[in-house]
Computed example of a mutant assay.
Amino acid sequence: MIVNEKIKAAEVLLTGVNGEDLGIVSTKEALKMAKELKVDLVCLSLSSSPPPCKLVDQTSHKKQLNQEKQKERKTEKGMKTKEIRLSAYIEEHDYDTKKRQAERILTSGDAVELVVRLEKKESQAAKELIEQLVRDLKHCGMQDKGIQVSGKQVVAIVKPL
């Protein structure tokens, strides 16, 4: 981003601190206005002539740049998959707690892997539990693939909407 004296254009299309349109102004005059108001003159784009520039408060400008960097970092990271373990015969209050935990993870943008560890012959109860939990989480996530029943566990992955 080009700021203050680094702007080389002879004229700029100037926008004020509060978003008001100040029209086409010489760069020297725009810099003078910026110094008087104790703000920065920021060039928004070099693709047009005259380049659009804005008078921006220094603290808000830095804050905006930091927010943009944080968003970029978050999109670079991508989505994580977090595991929630359950038992086939879970009590209602424990079920509600796990459901709220899954909702919180899904709304933050991460996927949830629901895992029920099996003991003895409880695969049908585990599958029904996961189906119910997926139905309850429909408002904030959707199931990816199907429910996988392997020898020792039942697994379903729910991705955020």
Rank of each mutant, 00 (worst) to 15 (best):
I130H: 05
L86G: 12
K121C: 02
I147Q: 03
K74M: 15
A30P: 11
R135F: 05
V116N: 06
S49H: 04
V42M: 07
S26I: 05
G23I: 05
V56K: 04
K152Y: 03
K69R: 15
N18K: 13
C53P: 03
S49K: 07
Q58L: 14
V134W: 07
Q153V: 05
E128L: 06
T107D: 05
L41N: 15
S49Q: 09
C53A: 04
A34G: 11
L13S: 06
L86V: 15
T15W: 13
Q64D: 13
D40Y: 10
V155R: 13
T27P: 07
S26F: 03
H61A: 12
L31W: 07
T27H: 08
V12F: 03
L65D: 10
L106Y: 08
Q67G: 10
L31I: 09
E119S: 07
K121F: 02
Q64L: 12
E20G: 01
K138H: 02
D94C: 05
S48F: 00
S47I: 06
V56S: 04
R85W: 09
H61D: 14
T107H: 07
T59V: 10
Q143S: 10
P52L: 06
K145C: 03
C140A: 06
C53V: 11
K35F: 01
G146L: 01
R100D: 07
K54S: 09
V17N: 04
S47E: 04
V158A: 03
K77D: 08
Y89D: 14
L114M: 08
Q153Y: 01
K159A: 00
T75W: 15
D40M: 11
I157K: 11
K152V: 07
K159L: 03
I130P: 01
T27G: 06
R104H: 09
E103N: 01
E103I: 00
D136T: 02
V115T: 07
L31R: 11
Q124S: 02
D94W: 05
L133P: 04
R85V: 10
S87I: 14
G19K: 06
V42H: 11
V158S: 01
N18E: 09
V112P: 00
K121W: 01
E131T: 00
A111G: 08
A126E: 07
E103M: 02
L106A: 08
